[in-house]
Design a protein around this nucleic acid. Structure first.
Length: 884
DNA sequence: TATTTCACG
DNA sequence: ACGTACGTGAAATAC
């Protein structure tokens, strides 16, 4: 079998990783980004090239023969930063754990060891790969050796072998050494020939093929080049020597020692846990090689039986009043009875199941207010039971939501298997492993009882073992109110909203569709006429060709794949050609028709005739809820044509929609959190905040503010919340950057506590690694300590925005819970049906409208006590369109 | 599957 | 000097 040897330049790769990745550290404060990056690179290389042998070469601190012969060698190099230095030893230990060979030798650089070992590999018929970020190693490329140079960061590599080097550079790999002899190398402080750069160097090497030959034939040169070479002959030869990688270092190593694959997975995982590399643990487990026996996959011992003796199980439950539960349902209508099995347990190991027809047996357990329901994605379970007329009460602990609160960015899915790995180092099958992925993925109804019981039994066991750990974490982080009283209470609220849905007027939808299609057809014709040909207007690519090539309009902006044709660009082009306005209008109507008219039509529930959107609680990094299938949080409102879509959303018979929205909730949160007297005062005195800001910036009386000033101030008020720059503001307001800068400075001069607040949260993010909302919701911001300017600035904007957006999200969640509970407690028929970030909509039956208005306003305004009032605007109408 | 665009707060 | 406002989801095209 063929043997493949990979030799890695350890220092080079760890350096790359360090500078490419954002700051990371483990719980002990050890920096880990370079180790992480190195390991990811290592895994990728192993995956791509399947090496049989590996060695990692390191530089030593001791001077090399190059230093001895040339004191200035590598002079002027910056010292390795301590954040990187401290990662070197742990990386070496990790390699040892992996049983990966590493080498270092006093007096020689890593390059020389690589040169020597690669030669050994070549001589023994290995296919050799050299991994480094240093292009010097291209000189080692040959028919048997491929040099892999890292591209941008550590993600990808570029391959160089003998042929590809010739093809790209028109010279052989070894001629690279000659080139360097002439050009020198700034980073290594190799002098070369002064005045000869890359261009001339390449020309000379192509002509004379080597430094030595060149020197002998300087008579064929002329002018300044001749002079330069003749005056620096020795220096050129010497530079070439410095640049030459040694290939016969007296290192005592046999290729057998480099063989890879025999390592203890468990030990590697332990190490990863120490570093906090949770995502890598999974990868190790699925990697070939390594001994599996000792791996973490201890079989979980479970007793899984049909629930025959309900009374006995109830007795067991009484001991703790904790029910661990997972419901398995088939894919189907949310309003139908779809339950296949219910798995329940009181102790995490004795697990019982019953099928969909036997549910009545546990109805009183499910609805018992005393029994705490503990599970994973409990909203799904709550919803599954609804069609059976069963109400799951006391939804107490959901480990998916728990993980979301602990780290809202750790992943997007919060897969149970990931949670198991992170908290228990237990490997259970993921949903994808059970069902497969893509088009031929199975569904739970396709699995047999054996597969189901293993998967869901393990899930219950994981829940049982993880929740106490999270319980403690919330206590330590002072997040108990947020978790139990806000998020867990919200599960039932969101479930109820989904189940109830919102009524739609299908006729209205059809009418709008007809109207839009008509307009689209007309616009299409006009656009083709103006363009002189037919094309797909929906294709940015084809549109780009028409606009910027055929019509030769000026290119405003480019995307990574071609011309940008977005609304901003079109806006700037609208004076240049009459086709532009037609396209803008076409885009708008097509969007309305495809996303809204057709999108909504497709998703109306055939049973209820209503729309049941999913409200997801574990998606956003800031704490907001998201809405999918369909997204009801982005129904058009800004243009009149778009707003007509809202006529589709109506109240049921004998009902009306009560729409309540917070007035400027984020700015009020900002006023409160910053404690800025000016802003607080404005809100307390019910002064229009945008006019107030305008009066301060433009130095006029509040009553004298004109509409332009007010709208500019509005842009600033909102922009500040997101950390907007002077440049961005200048673009939005179409004013010079200097003017925008002056506005922002004036803003912060007047609202000085806001500036102070922003500085403070950034500082907190830098120190602690996270920022907090008013209710201690956390957002980790690893970007904040990045060495990359752009990434770091972005981190600062996250830090400024997250507490504000997040606190507003906390507040409306509290309000939702309170509104829902009031409606329930007062036994009203009206239902909370929608939330759009700062807006709640209740479908209220006629006779309850006054009561509902009062409840919603009261609960929203009193959800939290801030230094400013929260104001809620109420509107009542037959449709969402009317509630304006 | 990735990219571009655009709808909302 | 950098590149330039946060948070989402859906549809369509192109690969």
């Amino acid at each position: 079998m063929d043997k493949r040897l990979i030799i890695i330049d350890g220092n080079s790769i760890i350096n790359r990783a360090f500078y490419a990745l954002p700051d990371m550290s483990n719980s002990d404060g050890l920096k880990t980004n370079a180790i992480y990056g190195f390991t990811r690179m290592l895994f990728k290389i192993i995956d791509d090239y399947k090496p049989t042998h590996i060695s990692v070469a390191f530089d030593m601190k001791a001077p090399t023969f190059r230093h001895k012969e040339f004191t200035d060698y590598k002079a002027g190099r910056k010292k390795m930063p301590d954040e990187l230095g401290q990662q070197l030893e742990p990386l070496k230990e990790l390699l040892d754990t992996f049983n990966i060979h590493r080498m270092e030798m006093a007096g020689y650089e890593a390059d020389d060891l690589i040169g020597t070992v690669s030669k050994m590999g070549e001589d023994n018929d290995f296919k050799v790969y050299i991994v480094t970020g240093d292009k010097d190693a291209i000189q080692l490329a040959s028919n048997k050796t491929t040099t892999l140079i890292t591209k941008k960061g550590v993600g990808e590599v570029e391959e160089y072998n003998y042929d590809s080097v010739i093809e790209r550079y028109e010279m052989t790999p070894t001629q690279f050494i000659d080139l360097k002899g002439l050009m020198g190398d700034k980073s290594d402080n190799i002098p070369g020939v002064p005045g000869i750069g890359e261009k001339t160097g390449i020309k000379l090497i192509k002509e004379f093929s080597s430094v030595e030959n060149l020197i002998e034939n300087t008579d064929k040169l002329k002018g300044s080049v001749k002079k330069k070479i003749e005056e620096n002959k020795e220096q050129a030869v010497f530079s070439k020597k410095l640049a030459t990688i040694i290939r016969d270092v007296p290192i005592e190593v046999s290729l057998d020692e480099l063989s890879f694959g025999d390592y203890d997975k468990n030990a590697v995982i332990e190490e990863f846990k120490k570093f906090g590399f949770n995502t890598l643990i999974k990868q190790v487990l699925s990697m070939d090689g390594g001994s599996e026996e000792s791996a973490v996959e201890e079989k979980i011992n479970l007793n899984i039986n049909h629930l025959d003796n309900v009374e006995e199980f109830k007795k067991e439950l009484e001991k703790t009043n904790k029910l661990f539960i997972k419901i398995v349902k088939k894919v189907g209508n949310i309003l139908d009875k779809n339950i296949l099995y219910v798995f329940v347990s009181s102790n995490g190991s004795d697990i019982y199941y019953l099928n969909g027809e036997e549910l009545e047996l546990i109805k009183d357990i499910i609805s018992n207010e005393e029994i705490k329901k503990i599970g994973y994605n409990l909203k799904d379970d709550y919803l599954a039971l609804k069609p059976y007329n069963m109400e799951m009460n006391n939804i107490f602990f959901d480990i998916a939501i728990g993980e979301y609160l602990i780290d809202s960015k750790s992943s997007t899915s919060y897969e149970c298997s990931d949670i198991a790995m992170k908290y228990l180092t237990k490997k259970i099958k993921s949903e994808e492993e059970i069902l497969g992925k893509g088009a031929k993925a199975k569904k739970f109804q396709d699995l047999d009882m054996d597969e189901l019981s293993t998967y869901f039994g393990e899930m219950i066991n994981i829940v049982y073992n993880v929740y106490p750990i999270m319980e403690k974490a919330f206590k330590d982080m002072e997040m108990e109110y947020l978790f139990y009283d806000v998020e867990m209470s919200l599960v039932e609220v969101l479930g109820s909203m989904e189940y109830y849905g919102v009524a739609v007027d299908k006729n209205q939808l059809r009418e709008l569709g007809d109207k839009f299609k008509n307009i689209i057809a007309n616009l299409e014709e006009e656009i083709f006429l103006l363009a002189g040909e037919k094309f797909n207007i929906n294709s940015p690519k084809q549109l780009g060709v028409i606009l910027f090539e055929k019509l030769e309009l000026p290119v405003i902006k480019k995307t990574k794949t071609g011309y940008s044709t977005n609304a901003d660009v079109l806006e700037k082009l609208r004076d240049k050609h009459e086709i532009i306005d037609k396209i803008t209008e076409y885009r708008q109507i097509v969007k309305l028709n495809s996303t809204y008219v057709e999108g909504l039509s497709n998703i109306i529930n055939p049973i209820s005739g209503r729309i049941h959107s999913s409200f997801n609680q574990t998606i956003t990094t800031t704490g907001r809820i998201s809405s999918t299938e369909p997204n009801l949080q982005n129904i058009p409102v800004k243009t009149e044509m778009g707003r007509e879509i809202r006529k589709v959303f109506i109240a049921d018979e004998n009902s009306k929609l009560v729409d309540a929205d917070y007035s400027q909730v984020e700015l009020r949160v900002l006023a409160h959190m910053s404690g800025d007297e000016h802003m607080i005062e404005a809100f307390q005195n019910h002064i229009d905040i945008h006019s107030k800001t305008a009066s301060q910036i433009f130095n006029v009386d509040v009553n004298e503010v004109n509409s332009t000033q007010r709208s500019e101030a509005k842009a600033i008020n909102f922009g500040i919340v997101y950390g907007k720059t002077d440049f961005g503001l200048s673009q939005d307001l179409n004013i010079p950057v200097a003017k925008a800068k002056a506005y922002i400075e004036s803003y912060f001069a007047n609202y000085s506590r806001i500036k102070y607040f922003m500085d403070k949260v950034i500082e907190q993010a830098k120190e602690k690694g996270y920022v907090l909302t008013e209710f201690n919701r956390r957002r980790y911001i690893p970007e904040i300590n990045s060495s990359n300017f752009m990434v770091r600035k972005q981190g600062e904007r996250f830090a400024m925005n997250a507490p504000i957006q997040g606190s507003a999200a906390d507040i409306i969640k509290i309000a939702m819970v309170n509104v829902y509970n009031r409606l329930k407690d007062e036994q009203l028929k009206s239902k909370l049906i929608l939330q759009v970030h700062d807006e709640l909509i209740v479908e209220a039956v006629e006779e309850e409208i006054d009561k509902v208005c009062k409840i919603v306003k009261e609960e929203m305004e009193s959800a939290v006590n801030l230094q400013v009032h929260l104001d809620v605007d109420l509107n009542v109408g037959n449709s969402w369109y009317e509630t304006k």
